[in-house]
Design a protein around this nucleic acid. Structure first.
Lengths: 174, 174
DNA sequence: GGAGACATGTAAGTGGTTACATGATTTC
DNA sequence: GAAATCATGTAACCACTTACATGTCTCC
Protein backbone atom coordinates (compact mmCIF):
# COMPACT_ATOMS: atom_id res chain seq x y z
CA UNK A 1 0.00 0.00 0.00
CA UNK A 2 1.32 3.40 -1.01
CA UNK A 3 2.13 6.00 1.57
CA UNK A 4 -0.42 8.36 0.03
CA UNK A 5 -3.21 5.83 0.59
CA UNK A 6 -2.11 5.49 4.19
CA UNK A 7 -2.27 9.28 4.60
CA UNK A 8 -5.78 9.34 3.22
CA UNK A 9 -6.87 6.71 5.72
CA UNK A 10 -5.23 8.43 8.64
CA UNK A 11 -6.75 11.80 7.70
CA UNK A 12 -10.20 10.22 7.85
CA UNK A 13 -10.04 10.53 11.63
CA UNK A 14 -8.88 14.15 11.83
CA UNK A 15 -6.88 16.84 10.01
CA UNK A 16 -3.16 16.66 10.73
CA UNK A 17 0.17 18.15 9.76
CA UNK A 18 2.61 16.12 7.68
CA UNK A 19 4.81 15.82 10.70
CA UNK A 20 2.00 14.39 12.82
CA UNK A 21 1.11 12.02 9.99
CA UNK A 22 4.62 10.65 10.03
CA UNK A 23 4.42 10.19 13.79
CA UNK A 24 1.17 8.26 13.38
CA UNK A 25 2.62 5.98 10.72
CA UNK A 26 5.74 5.23 12.73
CA UNK A 27 3.90 4.97 16.01
CA UNK A 28 0.83 2.94 15.15
CA UNK A 29 1.62 1.31 11.79
CA UNK A 30 5.35 0.97 12.29
CA UNK A 31 5.10 -2.81 12.55
CA UNK A 32 4.27 -3.10 8.85
CA UNK A 33 4.91 0.26 7.18
CA UNK A 34 7.57 2.94 7.00
CA UNK A 35 7.54 6.66 6.27
CA UNK A 36 10.23 9.24 5.64
CA UNK A 37 9.71 12.95 5.08
CA UNK A 38 11.28 12.70 1.67
CA UNK A 39 8.44 10.39 0.66
CA UNK A 40 5.70 11.97 2.74
CA UNK A 41 5.68 15.57 1.55
CA UNK A 42 5.75 14.74 -2.15
CA UNK A 43 2.93 12.24 -1.52
CA UNK A 44 0.86 14.90 0.23
CA UNK A 45 1.65 17.29 -2.61
CA UNK A 46 0.32 14.94 -5.25
CA UNK A 47 -2.71 14.14 -3.08
CA UNK A 48 -3.45 17.86 -2.96
CA UNK A 49 -2.89 18.22 -6.70
CA UNK A 50 -5.54 15.52 -7.16
CA UNK A 51 -7.85 17.39 -4.76
CA UNK A 52 -8.01 14.44 -2.40
CA UNK A 53 -6.78 16.61 0.45
CA UNK A 54 -6.71 20.33 1.14
CA UNK A 55 -4.09 22.08 3.20
CA UNK A 56 -4.43 25.09 5.41
CA UNK A 57 -1.32 27.08 6.10
CA UNK A 58 -1.52 28.83 9.43
CA UNK A 59 1.69 30.81 9.62
CA UNK A 60 2.28 33.16 6.70
CA UNK A 61 6.05 33.47 6.99
CA UNK A 62 8.09 31.07 4.89
CA UNK A 63 7.38 27.45 5.66
CA UNK A 64 4.41 27.59 7.96
CA UNK A 65 2.68 24.71 9.66
CA UNK A 66 0.27 23.13 7.24
CA UNK A 67 -2.89 21.33 8.32
CA UNK A 68 -3.99 18.64 5.89
CA UNK A 69 -7.64 17.60 5.68
CA UNK A 70 -9.29 14.96 3.50
CA UNK A 71 -11.93 16.01 0.97
CA UNK A 72 -15.11 14.20 -0.05
CA UNK A 73 -13.38 13.02 -3.19
CA UNK A 74 -10.47 11.87 -1.04
CA UNK A 75 -12.82 9.68 0.99
CA UNK A 76 -14.11 8.11 -2.19
CA UNK A 77 -10.59 7.56 -3.47
CA UNK A 78 -9.57 5.89 -0.23
CA UNK A 79 -12.54 3.52 -0.27
CA UNK A 80 -11.73 2.61 -3.84
CA UNK A 81 -8.04 2.00 -3.17
CA UNK A 82 -8.80 0.01 -0.03
CA UNK A 83 -11.16 -2.32 -1.85
CA UNK A 84 -8.39 -3.09 -4.34
CA UNK A 85 -5.62 -4.11 -1.95
CA UNK A 86 -4.50 -7.69 -2.02
CA UNK A 87 -3.48 -9.79 0.96
CA UNK A 88 0.16 -9.57 -0.12
CA UNK A 89 3.05 -9.29 2.25
CA UNK A 90 6.49 -8.23 1.25
CA UNK A 91 9.23 -9.70 3.34
CA UNK A 92 12.90 -9.06 2.68
CA UNK A 93 15.53 -10.10 5.12
CA UNK A 94 19.19 -9.20 5.01
CA UNK A 95 19.49 -11.32 8.10
CA UNK A 96 18.35 -14.49 6.34
CA UNK A 97 20.32 -13.57 3.22
CA UNK A 98 23.48 -13.45 5.29
CA UNK A 99 22.67 -16.67 7.15
CA UNK A 100 22.01 -18.39 3.83
CA UNK A 101 25.71 -17.86 3.19
CA UNK A 102 26.69 -18.79 6.73
CA UNK A 103 29.44 -21.08 5.44
CA UNK A 104 31.21 -17.96 4.15
CA UNK A 105 30.89 -16.20 7.50
CA UNK A 106 32.97 -16.26 10.64
CA UNK A 107 31.28 -17.86 13.66
CA UNK A 108 31.50 -14.55 15.51
CA UNK A 109 29.61 -12.81 12.73
CA UNK A 110 26.90 -15.44 12.73
CA UNK A 111 26.44 -15.07 16.45
CA UNK A 112 26.47 -11.30 16.19
CA UNK A 113 23.76 -11.39 13.53
CA UNK A 114 21.53 -13.68 15.57
CA UNK A 115 21.97 -11.62 18.71
CA UNK A 116 21.21 -8.41 16.85
CA UNK A 117 18.10 -9.85 15.29
CA UNK A 118 16.97 -11.18 18.65
CA UNK A 119 17.50 -7.75 20.23
CA UNK A 120 15.53 -6.08 17.44
CA UNK A 121 12.64 -8.49 17.84
CA UNK A 122 12.56 -7.96 21.58
CA UNK A 123 12.67 -4.18 21.27
CA UNK A 124 9.83 -4.27 18.78
CA UNK A 125 7.85 -6.58 21.05
CA UNK A 126 8.24 -4.11 23.90
CA UNK A 127 7.07 -1.31 21.62
CA UNK A 128 4.03 -3.30 20.53
CA UNK A 129 3.17 -4.23 24.10
CA UNK A 130 3.29 -0.54 25.11
CA UNK A 131 0.78 0.51 22.45
CA UNK A 132 -2.54 1.95 23.74
CA UNK A 133 -4.59 -1.10 22.80
CA UNK A 134 -7.68 0.11 24.62
CA UNK A 135 -8.16 3.17 22.42
CA UNK A 136 -7.77 1.29 19.14
CA UNK A 137 -10.32 -0.13 16.77
CA UNK A 138 -10.59 -3.90 16.56
CA UNK A 139 -8.83 -3.83 13.19
CA UNK A 140 -5.90 -1.94 14.64
CA UNK A 141 -5.68 -4.33 17.58
CA UNK A 142 -5.70 -7.19 15.12
CA UNK A 143 -2.60 -5.85 13.38
CA UNK A 144 -0.81 -5.49 16.71
CA UNK A 145 -1.66 -9.02 17.83
CA UNK A 146 -0.63 -10.42 14.45
CA UNK A 147 2.71 -8.62 14.59
CA UNK A 148 3.18 -9.74 18.18
CA UNK A 149 2.59 -13.38 17.41
CA UNK A 150 5.13 -13.19 14.59
CA UNK A 151 7.71 -11.53 16.82
CA UNK A 152 7.16 -14.13 19.51
CA UNK A 153 7.63 -16.95 17.04
CA UNK A 154 10.84 -15.37 15.76
CA UNK A 155 12.20 -14.83 19.27
CA UNK A 156 11.38 -18.36 20.29
CA UNK A 157 13.00 -19.77 17.18
CA UNK A 158 16.17 -17.73 17.42
CA UNK A 159 16.52 -18.33 21.13
CA UNK A 160 16.19 -22.08 20.76
CA UNK A 161 17.00 -23.41 17.32
CA UNK A 162 19.13 -20.42 16.43
CA UNK A 163 21.71 -21.24 19.04
CA UNK A 164 21.46 -24.92 18.22
CA UNK A 165 22.21 -24.13 14.59
CA UNK A 166 25.31 -22.18 15.54
CA UNK A 167 26.45 -25.22 17.52
CA UNK A 168 25.97 -27.43 14.46
CA UNK A 169 27.99 -25.06 12.31
CA UNK A 170 30.73 -24.89 14.94
CA UNK A 171 30.80 -28.67 15.08
CA UNK A 172 30.99 -28.96 11.29
CA UNK A 173 34.02 -26.69 11.24
CA UNK A 174 36.20 -28.09 13.98
CA UNK B 1 20.92 -7.20 0.50
CA UNK B 2 21.27 -6.23 -3.13
CA UNK B 3 20.50 -8.66 -5.88
CA UNK B 4 24.05 -8.32 -7.19
CA UNK B 5 25.48 -9.47 -3.86
CA UNK B 6 23.16 -12.46 -3.94
CA UNK B 7 24.37 -13.30 -7.45
CA UNK B 8 27.97 -13.18 -6.29
CA UNK B 9 27.19 -15.57 -3.45
CA UNK B 10 25.29 -17.98 -5.66
CA UNK B 11 28.06 -17.98 -8.29
CA UNK B 12 30.52 -19.08 -5.62
CA UNK B 13 29.15 -22.60 -5.99
CA UNK B 14 29.26 -22.83 -9.79
CA UNK B 15 29.01 -20.77 -12.98
CA UNK B 16 25.46 -20.20 -14.09
CA UNK B 17 23.34 -18.36 -16.65
CA UNK B 18 21.24 -15.38 -15.56
CA UNK B 19 18.16 -17.46 -16.07
CA UNK B 20 19.43 -20.21 -13.76
CA UNK B 21 20.42 -17.58 -11.22
CA UNK B 22 16.87 -16.31 -11.14
CA UNK B 23 15.59 -19.84 -10.68
CA UNK B 24 17.95 -20.30 -7.74
CA UNK B 25 16.86 -17.09 -6.08
CA UNK B 26 13.17 -17.85 -6.47
CA UNK B 27 13.56 -21.49 -5.61
CA UNK B 28 15.90 -21.48 -2.65
CA UNK B 29 15.84 -17.89 -1.37
CA UNK B 30 12.28 -17.09 -2.33
CA UNK B 31 11.17 -16.98 1.29
CA UNK B 32 13.10 -13.75 1.88
CA UNK B 33 14.21 -12.36 -1.48
CA UNK B 34 12.82 -11.62 -4.91
CA UNK B 35 14.29 -11.35 -8.37
CA UNK B 36 13.02 -10.18 -11.72
CA UNK B 37 14.87 -10.25 -15.01
CA UNK B 38 14.62 -6.51 -15.29
CA UNK B 39 16.73 -6.24 -12.15
CA UNK B 40 18.91 -9.27 -12.71
CA UNK B 41 20.52 -8.59 -16.08
CA UNK B 42 21.49 -4.99 -15.30
CA UNK B 43 22.91 -6.21 -11.97
CA UNK B 44 25.01 -8.83 -13.75
CA UNK B 45 26.06 -6.19 -16.25
CA UNK B 46 27.41 -3.88 -13.58
CA UNK B 47 29.05 -6.80 -11.80
CA UNK B 48 30.84 -7.59 -15.03
CA UNK B 49 31.79 -3.96 -15.52
CA UNK B 50 33.39 -4.06 -12.09
CA UNK B 51 35.19 -7.29 -13.06
CA UNK B 52 33.54 -9.22 -10.24
CA UNK B 53 32.17 -11.73 -12.72
CA UNK B 54 33.07 -12.77 -16.25
CA UNK B 55 30.62 -14.04 -18.80
CA UNK B 56 31.12 -16.55 -21.52
CA UNK B 57 28.81 -16.40 -24.47
CA UNK B 58 28.39 -19.76 -26.09
CA UNK B 59 26.16 -19.11 -29.08
CA UNK B 60 27.40 -16.41 -31.44
CA UNK B 61 24.06 -15.49 -33.00
CA UNK B 62 22.25 -12.58 -31.42
CA UNK B 63 21.45 -13.12 -27.77
CA UNK B 64 23.26 -16.29 -26.93
CA UNK B 65 23.28 -18.17 -23.66
CA UNK B 66 25.76 -16.50 -21.32
CA UNK B 67 27.55 -18.35 -18.55
CA UNK B 68 28.50 -16.14 -15.64
CA UNK B 69 31.43 -17.03 -13.39
CA UNK B 70 32.77 -15.24 -10.35
CA UNK B 71 36.33 -13.85 -10.39
CA UNK B 72 38.88 -13.72 -7.59
CA UNK B 73 38.08 -10.07 -7.06
CA UNK B 74 34.39 -10.99 -7.00
CA UNK B 75 35.04 -13.44 -4.16
CA UNK B 76 36.76 -10.68 -2.20
CA UNK B 77 33.94 -8.27 -2.92
CA UNK B 78 31.36 -10.78 -1.73
CA UNK B 79 33.18 -11.45 1.53
CA UNK B 80 33.43 -7.73 2.14
CA UNK B 81 29.77 -7.08 1.41
CA UNK B 82 28.69 -10.04 3.51
CA UNK B 83 30.63 -8.83 6.53
CA UNK B 84 28.81 -5.51 6.31
CA UNK B 85 25.22 -6.73 6.27
CA UNK B 86 23.08 -5.87 9.24
CA UNK B 87 20.48 -8.09 10.86
CA UNK B 88 17.72 -5.93 9.38
CA UNK B 89 14.43 -7.24 8.12
CA UNK B 90 12.10 -5.29 5.94
CA UNK B 91 8.49 -6.20 6.37
CA UNK B 92 5.71 -4.45 4.53
CA UNK B 93 2.21 -5.77 4.58
CA UNK B 94 -0.67 -4.58 2.46
CA UNK B 95 -2.70 -7.15 4.33
CA UNK B 96 -2.14 -5.49 7.71
CA UNK B 97 -2.49 -2.03 6.18
CA UNK B 98 -5.95 -2.96 4.97
CA UNK B 99 -6.90 -4.60 8.26
CA UNK B 100 -5.75 -1.49 10.12
CA UNK B 101 -8.61 0.26 8.34
CA UNK B 102 -11.00 -2.64 8.86
CA UNK B 103 -13.72 -0.27 10.06
CA UNK B 104 -13.80 1.15 6.52
CA UNK B 105 -14.11 -2.30 4.98
CA UNK B 106 -17.06 -4.58 4.30
CA UNK B 107 -17.13 -7.77 6.37
CA UNK B 108 -16.89 -9.82 3.18
CA UNK B 109 -13.71 -8.03 2.22
CA UNK B 110 -12.18 -8.61 5.63
CA UNK B 111 -12.94 -12.29 5.42
CA UNK B 112 -11.64 -12.47 1.88
CA UNK B 113 -8.36 -10.85 2.92
CA UNK B 114 -7.84 -13.23 5.83
CA UNK B 115 -8.67 -16.26 3.72
CA UNK B 116 -6.30 -15.14 0.98
CA UNK B 117 -3.49 -14.53 3.43
CA UNK B 118 -4.09 -17.91 5.03
CA UNK B 119 -3.99 -19.60 1.63
CA UNK B 120 -0.74 -17.81 0.77
CA UNK B 121 0.88 -18.85 4.02
CA UNK B 122 -0.17 -22.45 3.53
CA UNK B 123 1.06 -22.56 -0.05
CA UNK B 124 4.40 -21.14 1.03
CA UNK B 125 4.60 -23.64 3.87
CA UNK B 126 4.07 -26.46 1.41
CA UNK B 127 6.79 -25.03 -0.82
CA UNK B 128 9.21 -24.78 2.10
CA UNK B 129 8.44 -28.31 3.24
CA UNK B 130 9.18 -29.63 -0.25
CA UNK B 131 12.65 -28.08 -0.38
CA UNK B 132 15.59 -30.53 -0.58
CA UNK B 133 16.72 -29.98 3.01
CA UNK B 134 19.20 -32.83 2.91
CA UNK B 135 21.38 -31.28 0.22
CA UNK B 136 21.55 -27.85 1.86
CA UNK B 137 24.16 -26.29 4.09
CA UNK B 138 23.25 -25.74 7.73
CA UNK B 139 22.89 -22.00 7.06
CA UNK B 140 20.43 -22.64 4.27
CA UNK B 141 18.45 -25.06 6.41
CA UNK B 142 18.38 -22.42 9.12
CA UNK B 143 16.68 -19.92 6.79
CA UNK B 144 14.09 -22.52 5.83
CA UNK B 145 13.29 -23.43 9.42
CA UNK B 146 13.09 -19.77 10.40
CA UNK B 147 10.69 -19.02 7.57
CA UNK B 148 8.68 -22.11 8.42
CA UNK B 149 8.29 -21.15 12.06
CA UNK B 150 7.08 -17.69 11.01
CA UNK B 151 4.58 -19.14 8.57
CA UNK B 152 3.30 -21.55 11.17
CA UNK B 153 2.81 -18.74 13.67
CA UNK B 154 0.93 -16.69 11.10
CA UNK B 155 -1.29 -19.60 10.10
CA UNK B 156 -2.08 -20.44 13.70
CA UNK B 157 -2.89 -16.82 14.47
CA UNK B 158 -5.09 -16.25 11.45
CA UNK B 159 -6.87 -19.54 11.87
CA UNK B 160 -7.69 -18.85 15.52
CA UNK B 161 -7.63 -15.22 16.49
CA UNK B 162 -8.23 -14.02 12.95
CA UNK B 163 -11.67 -15.55 12.81
CA UNK B 164 -12.38 -14.42 16.36
CA UNK B 165 -11.53 -10.89 15.37
CA UNK B 166 -13.94 -10.98 12.47
CA UNK B 167 -16.62 -12.13 14.91
CA UNK B 168 -15.86 -9.16 17.17
CA UNK B 169 -16.12 -6.74 14.25
CA UNK B 170 -19.38 -8.34 13.14
CA UNK B 171 -20.73 -8.03 16.66
CA UNK B 172 -19.69 -4.38 16.91
CA UNK B 173 -21.59 -3.60 13.72
CA UNK B 174 -24.92 -5.31 14.26
C1' DG C 1 6.05 -27.50 -36.98
C1' DG C 2 3.94 -26.14 -32.62
C1' DA C 3 4.14 -25.65 -27.64
C1' DG C 4 6.51 -24.61 -23.88
C1' DA C 5 10.51 -23.98 -21.40
C1' DC C 6 14.91 -21.74 -21.75
C1' DA C 7 17.29 -17.46 -22.42
C1' DT C 8 18.71 -12.30 -22.82
C1' DG C 9 17.89 -7.89 -22.89
C1' DT C 10 15.89 -2.64 -22.85
C1' DA C 11 12.94 1.43 -21.56
C1' DA C 12 10.02 3.79 -18.82
C1' DG C 13 8.35 4.40 -14.63
C1' DT C 14 7.87 3.88 -9.41
C1' DG C 15 8.05 4.56 -4.85
C1' DG C 16 10.73 5.24 -2.29
C1' DT C 17 15.69 6.66 0.64
C1' DT C 18 19.39 9.78 2.20
C1' DA C 19 21.22 13.96 2.81
C1' DC C 20 20.68 18.51 2.92
C1' DA C 21 18.67 23.16 3.91
C1' DT C 22 15.72 26.00 6.52
C1' DG C 23 12.85 27.92 9.90
C1' DA C 24 9.27 28.07 14.08
C1' DT C 25 8.01 26.97 18.73
C1' DT C 26 8.60 25.33 23.28
C1' DT C 27 11.07 24.43 27.48
C1' DC C 28 14.62 25.01 30.64
C1' DG D 1 19.51 32.33 24.83
C1' DA D 2 20.51 27.40 24.06
C1' DA D 3 18.73 23.05 23.11
C1' DA D 4 15.28 20.14 21.75
C1' DT D 5 11.42 19.26 19.23
C1' DC D 6 8.22 20.55 15.84
C1' DA D 7 7.76 21.51 11.04
C1' DT D 8 8.36 21.81 5.74
C1' DG D 9 10.58 21.11 1.89
C1' DT D 10 14.09 19.83 -2.27
C1' DA D 11 17.59 17.22 -5.01
C1' DA D 12 20.00 13.41 -6.15
C1' DC D 13 19.99 8.92 -6.21
C1' DC D 14 18.57 3.92 -5.94
C1' DA D 15 17.12 -0.60 -6.57
C1' DC D 16 13.94 -2.11 -8.18
C1' DT D 17 9.13 -3.41 -11.17
C1' DT D 18 6.42 -3.87 -15.38
C1' DA D 19 5.97 -4.33 -19.91
C1' DC D 20 7.88 -5.17 -23.93
C1' DA D 21 10.84 -7.24 -27.64
C1' DT D 22 13.42 -10.95 -29.25
C1' DG D 23 15.33 -15.26 -30.04
C1' DT D 24 16.77 -20.55 -29.08
C1' DC D 25 16.27 -25.28 -27.80
C1' DT D 26 13.84 -29.52 -26.82
C1' DC D 27 10.30 -32.60 -27.06
C1' DC D 28 6.25 -34.45 -28.93
Amino acid sequence: MQLSTLCLGLLLAEPMTGYALKGKVIGTLGHFQHASFGALYPALGSLEAGRFVTSDRSGSTGLGKRLYAITESGRGEFTERLAEVSAAENFRSDFLSALYFADQLALDDIERLIDERLANHRAERRRLLALPIASMTEGQRFTVRYALSMRNAAIEFLHGEGRASVAVIRHERY
